[in-house]
Write a protein that binds this DNA or RNA. Structure first.
Lengths: 115, 115
DNA sequence: CCCATGGTACGAGAGTCGTCGAAGCAGACG
DNA sequence: CGTCTGCTTCGACGACTCTCGTACCATGGG
């Protein structure tokens, strides 16, 4: 193995193409919000197979595509698996503080509802 | 007139019933986002008729209902018109900083796209 | 080379959403 | 009273979303 396997590449929106409405819509689904939350809590990258979601595999693919096409996550193939990472820098540059407040809000709501 | 005209009353969710997903979904529509932006820029209350939206009146009613039922705005009848106000305090208590970062992001995006 | 594994593509079905027009109701004002 | 204004209600329609199952492809290991 070299450093990166750039065999198959995925289409991502440029930072300038990311739309606020798209990001908010992407985050307004419980499954996707939990993905983002998990991703934010982890170090850097997570394989799709890491997530334990209450939906089938094809639905998982769909949600990851929504997240990627809205500009929330960046995805790259690594052998047979696909790695996912939040686009923290791009989002922070475009919408300062937005991601963090959503993450905090999501954590607060989870705590509020499970308490 | 007394102080308030409590003739017809609207159903609003309690603060504890406001869900993050609902708020994000409510804000992910361009028409509703522009309403919220306008509301945030104004002093306190605005009549529905004040807004100049690119949709018909029945669609406007629909969008205001979504905003109200998701807990983003509070509405009250005042004679023949209906007054709208952001639920800043409730949202701030539940999701600190969220509304402000969305408003800032929306303003930034508008500036970015019209520049 | 074969096959297991991780993810994708393609319908398809149920449900929701945004939009509209037409008809209706509640106050305000003559 | 009659009428105007502001908003609502009620279908209805097309579009999109979330979900699934099945079939499929691509990589890596025996």
């Amino acid at each position: 193995m070299t450093d990166r396997d750039t065999s198959r590449t995925l289409a991502h929106p440029e930072a300038a193409e990311i739309r606020l409405e798209g990001v908010l819509h992407a985050l307004s689904d419980p499954v996707r919000l939990s993905i983002v939350l998990d991703l934010a809590g982890s170090a850097d990258d997570l394989a799709c197979s890491h997530f334990d979601l209450p939906v089938t595999k094809s639905t998982t693919t769909h949600h990851f595509r929504v997240l990627r096409e809205s500009g929330v996550v960046r995805q790259a193939y690594r052998g047979t698996t696909k790695l996912n990472a939040l686009r923290r820098d791009d989002l922070e540059a475009l919408f300062p503080g937005l991601l963090d407040s959503v993450l905090t809000a999501a954590a607060a709501e989870t705590a509020r509802l499970t308490a």
